[in-house]
Design a protein around this nucleic acid. Structure first.
Lengths: 339, 339
DNA sequence: CTGTTAGCGCTTTCAA
DNA sequence: TTGAAAGCGCTAACAG
């Protein structure tokens, strides 16, 4: 069914080797020959077989992307950026989603998943076990993390401690002293470090400002709207005075808190200031103050480095710290007078 | 570097053919031999080369997934479902994102992208041009759409007309007569038909109820929060009386409208009812009434049919209509008395 | 139940 | 600048 290189060679009256060289833009092919080959190939609708060239070269021109979820803000946008760069360079993107940070059998991916079918792997915000890392390094394809530090592997991401600190500085600068914390990512803290980094920064900022975190003002959950809602509800229902501001581990949590506050008639920002991290698509419309990051740029940068490395630039894969930016919107203001 | 089938064969003292049969679970291999082969393979860390078996069989065990975006609610969730089923069956998922419904060069994907590297293609809510369809059918791999009808191609999706009608019936049943419409997906109407179907249903429902749509109560944009916001703003600013309810083409638009209403102090549902379609992750937390659909189930169903077809069940790929469900939440109520 | 052998379609020396 | 030929690692007859 398929048109093969031999068909093109026959039709163009040259050898298969020449067709191969011509089509791949290699030197040492006369312009006349090259033109002829191109026209015949186009005419026949020839498309090279990836399997065959993969087998012959040992390279698949495919990059694997391992993600915990595809249906979450950061990941969707990062994948978009990765895809762009890959496609621009003729690479394919093979997607592996874990559908959650599950451990166990679903994670027996590394060995079989990776070997012999991808030239490089991008790991998105995902903690890897020692064993997994060992296996991945053993296959010795370039490896790079996006969105958060992964043990023993270079990465592209923002400085989460600095970002969270900037958020806290904003709150403290406005005069808040009763600051609560919606902590995220409790499920996988050993391996996925971003939520913990943000929490550490929160605590450090509190200490630096001479403020004491109160247990009743602290609630945890995953980085999702519904967990944000529930966590906020717990804080709102805790006895004693309410915090005047909430530092949220992610915008999704902050938005959940915002919905919950609205439902209870707690006015934002008059009675409660809210700040998140990410700049989720919903944040600007909702008027949420946040620390913005740009996952698609992370994806682009990471994919670019990986391709450079594959292209022969040894050491192209480096740790890169991406910028973040405070976006002040309607959800933060000085605390109420009486506070 | 790589352990090949020959290494396993040598070590197990059998032929490569036997190793191949044993590892793939084919019949006519003694249990003793099979066990031996498995243990040697494990010991050596053997992983078959996809390129080689792809070349030999002509099948790649890879399914392509073509999406307009990966960072939008419907697509992210659909991909998640597809990925699950594919992975459970040892298939890979090759992702092609268009990063928007762009036409032109970015869309010269079909021919080169598809051929010789995937066994089947899933097209997500994406209109295809005649030429693209022709090419795809020409490659004659199974083809299936998810999320919306695609000309000349079977698909898995909800009945959008019925879904939109259910939403309208809810509004009308509550007593609303001044109903506005946030119309979505204006950019690609010729090819991507879902938004148009929902609009048609809106108009039909209005007519059936003897209501006349007013131009000032109608605004269009893409299926996004920010477009929903802007469209709602236009309606709120139009001269004359305001609608008492807004039928929105998607939850993202409805949520945009909700944010805009809140910003303007328009109370929901007392002054304005809002209904969307989708049941976006944010909808339950925001209390948005909607017609729920489950894209991950669409993805699972579609991937399942495709695999059945590839497995030899001719005719496995069929049109399937998925269920939807009205979820009444806090954003809808009867219109205010004076209305 | 197992082994031999001939490709699958491309790339890549090595010669010419 | 071009061609001939030897694989890449696996599968699939066909024998035995």
């Amino acid at each position: 069914m398929g048109v093969s290189i031999d068909d093109v060679a026959a039709q163009a009256h040259v050898s298969t080797a020449t067709v191969s060289r011509a089509l791949r833009g290699l030197p040492r092919v006369s312009e006349a020959t090259r033109a002829k080959v191109f026209s015949v190939a186009a005419e026949l609708g020839y498309v090279p077989s990836r399997s065959a060239s993969g087998l012959a070269t040992g390279r698949t021109r495919t990059v694997g992307v391992l993600v915990p979820f595809v249906d979450r803000w950061y990941f969707g946008h990062a994948i978009e950026g990765i895809d762009q760069v890959l496609r621009e360079n003729g690479y394919n993107l093979l997607l592996f989603s874990l559908g959650g940070y599950l451990h166990g059998q679903k994670r027996s991916f590394t060995e079989s998943m990776v070997r012999k079918q991808i030239d490089a792997l991008l790991v998105l915000s995902l903690g890897l076990s020692e064993e997994e890392l060992r296996q991945l390094h053993h296959t010795d394809i370039p490896l790079l993390s996006v969105g958060g530090p992964v043990n023993g592997c270079r990465g592209v991401y923002i400085d989460d401690v600095a970002a969270a600190t900037a958020a806290m500085d904003h709150l403290i600068g406005l005069g808040h002293r009763r600051i609560g914390h919606l902590r995220g990512g409790v499920q996988d803290e050993q391996t996925f470090r971003v939520p913990a980094l943000r929490t550490v920064a929160f605590e450090a900022a509190m200490a630096r400002a001479g403020l004491e975190p109160r247990p009743g003002w602290n609630a945890a959950g995953e980085f999702t709207v519904s967990d944000g809602m529930q966590a906020a509800a717990r804080i709102f229902e805790a006895p004693g005075e309410r915090p005047t501001a909430l530092f949220c581990g992610s915008d999704e949590m902050a938005l959940g808190a915002m919905f919950e506050a609205q439902r209870r008639g707690i006015r934002i920002p008059e009675e409660l200031s809210l700040i998140g991290i990410d700049d989720h698509d919903f944040s600007a419309p909702a008027g949420l103050t946040t620390i913005a990051q740009q996952p698609w740029e992370h994806g682009r940068a990471a994919a670019g480095m990986l391709l450079a490395e594959l292209g022969g630039t040894a050491g192209a894969v480096r740790d890169v710290t991406m910028p973040f930016e405070l976006k002040v919107r309607r959800s933060t203001a000085p605390p109420p007078r009486e506070a």
